[in-house]
């Protein structure tokens, strides 16, 4: 589903590569944490998967596309199959919750009828149906991030990339977001999330890819942020199983 083969990326003017011959394979339906300190290369990896950046050497394959060979005109089509969430939410302040989510469909020319069913569905999924007419400024940070997640999911992507989605949120709100992301993953969407929130990683017990100075120094299934025995780790909070994620409908 996502594969990096000896991917090397050096930014202009940088002494050392941001990613140095990194290989990684992510299967359909996986939930993967990319962990590491700031500047370790987590975000670069996400940007490569999103084709925001291109590798200098090696290959990046996402959803069957070799991103090195993807022509500029195909990039837009490719990105429609991905959803992205950021630390700073990136909502449009002058549009309501509903309009923010609908915007993602309008700009890719989805028909009105589709928008009118998909947007309420996804707002229901993230639990914001009641606040569809609010402006982002009238929402809490957690709610704003849920709008951003709704926008990322509304076109039913196969992959959700999240760059520090809880970085601006308090622990309780972060948990809510993680519960939501887990639910989305359980419904079949592959989730790749960069974070340095130790508590979250330890609690979720998912695959952890640790990056340091551009190298993968650890890749472990169902692991914690640091290598400590996982037996004693608490299990993630219950997620309501009765809400089906629209992406599989």
């Amino acid at each position: 589903m996502i594969r990096l083969e000896n991917a090397t990326k050096t930014y202009k003017g940088a002494d050392a590569p941001a990613l140095d011959s990194v290989s990684l394979d992510i299967q359909r339906g996986e939930f993967v944490f990319l962990v590491g300190t700031s500047g370790s290369g987590k975000s670069t990896m996400l940007r490569l998967m999103l084709r925001e950046e291109r590798v200098d050497q090696g290959e990046v394959l996402v959803l069957g596309e070799n991103l090195n060979q993807l022509s500029a005109s195909k990039v837009a089509q490719f990105r429609r199959k991905l959803g992205v969430v950021f630390q700073d939410f990136r909502l449009l302040p002058n549009k309501t919750v509903y309009q923010n989510v609908a915007f993602a469909l309008q700009v890719i020319g989805r028909p009105k009828a589709f928008i009118e069913t998909a947007v309420p569905d996804v707002l229901e999924l993230v639990g914001l149906s009641q606040k569809a007419d609010r402006l982002p400024s009238a929402l809490s940070g957690g709610e704003q991030q849920r709008v951003a997640i709704a926008r990322a999911l509304v076109n039913r992507p196969e992959v959700l990339l999240a760059d520090e989605p809880t970085g601006n949120l308090d622990p309780a709100t972060s948990n809510e977001i993680m519960t939501l992301l887990d639910r989305i993953n359980l419904s079949g969407t592959t989730v790749v999330m960069a974070t340095h929130d130790r508590g979250i990683v330890d609690r979720m017990q998912k695959r952890v890819v640790e990056i340091k100075a551009g190298h993968i120094i650890r890749d472990a299934k169902t692991a914690s942020y640091r290598e400590i025995p996982s037996d004693s780790m608490p299990i993630i909070p219950d997620s309501p199983a009765d809400i089906d994620f629209g992406g599989q409908a």
Binding site: L50, A72, S73, A76, Q77, F78, R79, R80, K81, L82, V84, R90, L92, F103, A104, V107, I108, G109, R151, N155
Partner: peptide, 17 residues
């Protein structure tokens, strides 16, 4: 620029942006 960056992320074509 915020609109534009979102448009690019969700896969709006260059032409429509």
């Amino acid at each position: 620029r915020r609109e534009i960056s979102i448009m690019r992320l969700v896969g709006a074509s260059r032409f429509s942006i």
